[in-house]
């Protein structure tokens, strides 16, 4: 069997991609479109919902139904789509500013509701599109255009947040681990209930240069060195304060999703006339 290329889901009249040289988002988009192809998704049965930010531009390149929404609110629009048509594959693409900073409230509640959405959060540690300001995932003490003397705030662990809020599936990868990234995306797409894949990606225009990673390859090296497979990860050996992060599948459960539970509500409601 020929390898999936994902090309049939790429809007070819929209390329070249707008992302900077060395950005990891093209690799993530490719993994997503190849996953669609391998899982037999169609343009008709898929809705890709995006927020605002560099990753929020991804819908421009995708041939499925798309819904490009407001900053931080993609999950709420996606919730409405999925609630009334459970048959649709609803995939939500958000960045770290979009998904867990301005959109943090929707993120935890979508996970708590366990609504069958697949959230793919591309984390590049800062707001790339608006000039490299700090977000809720910017590591403490690191430098951005609004933390010139080091970040006084602590960063969110996006995966721990999703797990605590009740997501059925949680995984983290980096764009350095291309094969595993696509496997995680496929697992998340296949999983009923709320699933999250956090993908760490270089921002070669802002975050890297602001933090002593002058050229794109420096950030890729960082992802290689700092991303530790879960089975080898020991917090004491690989402290997050030094930029280490575990990669791999962290949560995989099968709690009933929102639409399944709502069917129970309908049954009860219809019994009471």
């Amino acid at each position: 069997m020929a390898h999936a290329t994902g090309l049939k889901f790429l809007r070819k009249n929209s390329i070249p991609l707008m992302w900077c040289s060395g950005c990891g988002y093209g690799a993530a988009l490719s993994a997503l479109l190849r996953s669609f192809e391998e899982l037999g998704y169609t343009n008709e049965d898929t809705v890709v919902v995006t927020g605002i930010g560099c990753w929020g531009k991804a819908d421009d390149y995708i041939t499925t139904n798309t819904l490009h929404t407001t900053h931080g609110r993609a999950l709420s629009f996606a919730t409405g789509v999925k609630a009334v048509n459970p048959k649709l594959h609803v995939v939500v693409l958000m960045g770290d500013g979009d998904g867990v900073t301005i959109g943090g409230n929707h993120f935890i509640h979508a996970a708590r509701r366990n609504i069958d959405l697949t959230a793919i959060v591309l984390n590049n540690y800062n707001y790339g599109m608006t000039g490299g300001q700090y977000s809720a995932t910017t590591p403490a003490y690191s430098y951005t255009s609004t933390t010139r003397y080091g970040n006084p705030e602590r960063e969110f662990d996006v995966c721990a947040l999703a797990e605590a809020a009740g997501a059925n599936y949680v995984a983290r990868e980096s764009v350095y681990r291309g094969f595993q990234m696509q496997e995680r995306i496929k697992e998340a797409l296949n999983k009923p209930g709320f699933s999250l894949v956090e993908i760490i990606s270089p921002c070669t225009t802002h975050y890297g240069p602001n933090n002593k990673m002058k050229v794109p390859i420096d950030m890729i090296r960082m992802l290689k060195v700092k991303g530790i497979p879960l089975e080898k990860y020991e917090p004491d050996q690989y402290p997050s304060a030094e930029g280490y992060f575990p990669v791999g599948k962290m949560v995989d459960k099968n709690a009933p999703d929102f639409n399944t539970r709502y069917e129970e509500v309908r049954t009860k409601a219809q019994q009471i006339s």
């Binding site: 809705v47 709420s76 409405g80 789509v81 609630a83 009334v84 929707h106 409601a269």
Partner: peptide, 29 residues
């Protein structure tokens, strides 16, 4: 709404409520 095949959702805030009704409308409701 659950009696007539519809869906009621109490959202986390009014921002999400407005987003959800737009999504639901595009999905045909």
């Amino acid at each position: 709404l659950p009696k007539i095949g519809g869906v009621f959702m109490q959202m986390e805030d009014e921002i999400a409520s407005m987003g959800a009704i737009v999504g639901a409308s595009l999905a045909g409701a």
